[in-house]
Amino acid sequence: MISFDKINKWYGSYHALCDVSAEVAKGEVVVVCGPSGSGKSTLIRTVNRLEEIQSGKIVFDGQDIHAPRLNLNHFRAGVGFVFQSFNLFPHLSVLDNIMMAPVNVLGTKRSDARAQALALLERVGLGAKANAFPGQLSGGQQQRVAIARALAMKPPAMLFDEPTSALDPEMVGEVLQVMKSLAKDGMTMICVTHEMGFAREVADRVWFMDHGKLVETGSPDSFFTSPQSPRAQKFLSDLRSH
């Protein structure tokens, strides 16, 4: 479904991504973890081209995302992205937030878009908040709306960039719940997250990144119980000592 082939990215002279190669199969859930600055967010942001790479090839759903004739907006509509800081549109109601893209990008009829939006809100547990505004919602609620907004475009895969890092502890659970149910329904997902419990429960594979390199990949069980690389071992022990 998604493949990275020798991806390289530089910020000036800083080598942010070094020869990263990996694949995500359809229906697979991948958790990307690693210390701050390891390039995890940068990596998933290259998939919908919020970050551009200098060399390498990325294929998404059979499409080379750097093909010259690619309609970028069209392509992005097919990639679901959830931000760390939710980025809901504060001047629009929850329902309008979710309907905005299907109506304006896919050309969906407003009535159809509304019905879909309401169904998605139910799915994330916020059916009652359709007419509320983002400023009136808690962080956890806002992030769930953000997930619904991304799902409204019916993407074949969803990317999550530290979806719970900006949330108060008691709200992390409700968002992870939604993500777990998405995974169970067979959505292809790449999640950058520090939530190791989520990784153990739901991920099919864990990718460990450090200093821009994809250092280790493995199943959650093998990664958490016996990480192979010394850097992964250090990362996990630092995590546990908190």
Binding site: H74, R76, A77, N87, A101, N104, V105, R149
Partner: peptide, 11 residues
């Protein structure tokens, strides 16, 4: 980030 979120949706 508002522009980013909009573009990520395909606008």
């Amino acid at each position: 980030s508002q522009m980013e979120a909009s573009r990520a949706l395909g606008l």
